[in-house]
Design a protein around this nucleic acid. Sequence first.
DNA 1: AGAATTACTGAGAACAAGTCTCAATAAGGC
DNA 2: GCCTTATTGAGACTTGTTCTCAGTAATTCT
Lengths: 140, 140
Amino acid sequence: MSQSPSWSEYSARRIAEAGLRRSIPRRRVIDLLAERDCAVTALEIDAELDGVGRATVYRAIEQLEDLGLVRKVDLGASAHGYEKVEPSGHHHHHIVCDDCGKVEPFEDEALEEAIHHIRRKGFSLESHEVTLHGHCAECR
Amino acid sequence: MSQSPSWSEYSARRIAEAGLRRSIPRRRVIDLLAERDCAVTALEIDAELDGVGRATVYRAIEQLEDLGLVRKVDLGASAHGYEKVEPSGHHHHHIVCDDCGKVEPFEDEALEEAIHHIRRKGFSLESHEVTLHGHCAECR
DNA sequence: AGAATTACTGAGAACAAGTCTCAATAAGGC
DNA sequence: GCCTTATTGAGACTTGTTCTCAGTAATTCT
């Protein structure tokens, strides 16, 4: 399943190292993010995890984001999406259908290459986000 | 001033051609967008244009977006930004400071080149959005 | 020009996403 | 087990965006 076999464990450890407790609700948020390979919104997580409060979902995401374990992606929808960050640095970007909102991940080596050559005076660059917009087969 | 001398006029014409009326409030939204070279939020426009209702601002933006005269940009902030689309196709992308939220535009020819080589089965690509994240000089 | 038609508008209600508050609960240390 | 303190869930609140509707103004008709 081309799974990250350990992002979940890795994150749990990083959370512990940051001095945070091993609570069950937070762990459930981590596990849900672990099994998703593309963006999920906070409200989707909240809806999927019965018994975990919305505030807890948002808090957990924020902590994971601060630790660099999760990244926020803006795909033009009303809500933000979140996806795990692989420790390897391996990542993908997104193609969005502007008609139906369908999202597909993609990877492109030449694109990454071009981005890594960009330098900006007065800025230290750390990450990047690329979104391609278009129309999917069904909508055309 | 490297201004678009005519985006405002061009847009007014396109609006008319689309069968919409030449109303003063919509024209004021167009003129404000015309004089800004980087992203503005709907609420900033609303705040700046006294006497123009919020609903009118959102409606005007939507119409301009539908006609391809304005593009939405998501910069990680709570509100979306909007910026004019030059008929020439000339455009820029954004660098965001993840600490203070400062946004700077940038252009990169090699990046555009790499993006235009991307093809995706089942998708017709029409536009793209690149956001670089990092930390600005003041925040480091 | 004046009347008729109908798009457009502003105020504010409604809604949606995300944040904050606070009393109750549960981890981890002793 | 007891104590300390991080964490939690419910729900109030805030912010951004959309919707509603009666009044206004741009166009068209005559």
